[in-house]
């Protein structure tokens, strides 16, 4: 019961904060709204039985990625930008597209098969780690490191001042 109330409270928070991300005029406001979304999603992961993902979400997203966003917003002094929403003529088109998207993905999700909750679920850190480092994910895991290095090299090369 308490779990249900908590879930809906978090869901409403996440959803309204997501709206704020899109509607905020200043990039900094968007960033803080996004942090709220990330934290409530992390709590929802906890409710869904994955404490490790809940914490990793905070470590990687709220702790690192959003700090990077804040840094860039401060670095470029985005407050000077006037760019708000797009031209008015775009709005109906975008909403139409979003509506179609909701319909389509919604159809898939509603039609999706949810297994009844009889099966025991072990979302503990150990179970997670066992699966992550099993043979099935070896290549993905190693590819991740290549991805990270590529991103690092790319970011360094792009951001350094050309001389």
């Amino acid at each position: 019961m308490a779990e249900t109330i908590l879930f809906y409270a978090l869901a409403i928070t996440a959803f309204s904060a997501a709206f704020a991300v899109v509607l905020q005029k200043s990039a900094l406001g968007s960033a803080f709204a996004l942090i709220v979304v990330l934290c409530s999603l992390s709590a929802i992961y906890g409710l869904l039985g994955s404490p490790i993902l809940a914490t990793l979400q905070i470590v990687i997203y709220a702790g690192a990625v959003m700090v990077l966003f804040l840094f860039v917003i401060m670095l470029l002094d985005v407050r000077r930008e006037k760019g708000g929403g797009g031209p008015r003529s775009f709005v109906p088109l975008a909403l139409l597209f979003a509506g179609l998207l909701v319909l389509q993905v919604g159809a898939v999700l509603v039609g999706s098969e949810l297994v009844p909750q009889s099966a025991p679920f072990d979302g503990s850190a150990k179970a997670f780690a066992r699966r992550l480092f099993s043979q099935d994910y070896v290549y993905v895991f190693e590819a991740t490191s290549v991805l990270i290095v590529a991103a690092l090299a790319g970011a360094l090369a792009l951001a350094r001042r050309r001389r």
């Binding site: 490790i52 914490t55 470590v59 709220a62 700090v67 850190a125």
Partner: peptide
């Protein structure tokens, strides 16, 4: 269950 990771998360915040 993930105490140390929780600490790491909070300290990044």
């Amino acid at each position: 269950d993930v105490g140390v990771l929780y600490l790491f998360a909070v300290s990044t915040l």
